[in-house]
Simulated assay, not measured.
Amino acid sequence: MEILQSESPRVGGLIASNECVLPYTSVREVADRFFSLAQMDALAIAEGNEPVGLVTRPKLLFTLFRRYGFELYGKKPIIAIADTEPLLIHKEERLDVAIDRALDRPAENIYDDIIIVDDGDCYKGLLSVRQMVIQQSNALANSIVQKEMASERAKELEKLSKIKSQFIANVTHELRSPVNAIIGLTELMRTSCEKGYTDQLKDRISLLISSAVNLRAIITNILDLSKIEAGKIEVVCEHFDVATILREVAETTRILLGSKRVDVEVVAHDGPVFIESDPTKVRQILTNLTSNAAKFTEKGRIVMALGIEDERLMISVSDTGVGIKEDDLSKLFIAFSQLEDAKTKRHEGTGLGLTITKNLLNLLGGSISVSSKYGEGTTFEISLPINYKAEEL
Rank of each mutant, 00 (worst) to 15 (best):
L4N: 10
S6E: 08
S8R: 06
G12M: 01
S17V: 11
E29N: 13
A46L: 05
V52K: 10
V52E: 00
G53M: 04
G53E: 02
L61K: 07
L61W: 05
F65C: 07
L72G: 06
Y73F: 05
K76G: 00
I79T: 11
I81L: 04
L88I: 11
L103G: 04
Y111K: 11
D112T: 11
D119T: 04
L127H: 03
S128V: 02
I134C: 06
S143G: 00
A150Q: 05
R153C: 00
K155E: 06
S161T: 14
S165C: 10
P178D: 01
R190A: 13
T191S: 13
Y197L: 15
R216E: 10
I222H: 07
L246V: 15
I255D: 15
G258A: 09
S259L: 14
P279T: 03
R283T: 07
V303I: 15
A305N: 05
L306V: 10
L306S: 02
L313Y: 03
T320H: 04
K331N: 14
L332G: 06
S337K: 15
E340R: 12
G349H: 09
T350Q: 12
G351L: 05
G353S: 06
L361T: 05
G365F: 01
G365T: 09
I368H: 07
G377L: 03
T379F: 04
I382F: 07
L384V: 08
N387C: 12
E391C: 08
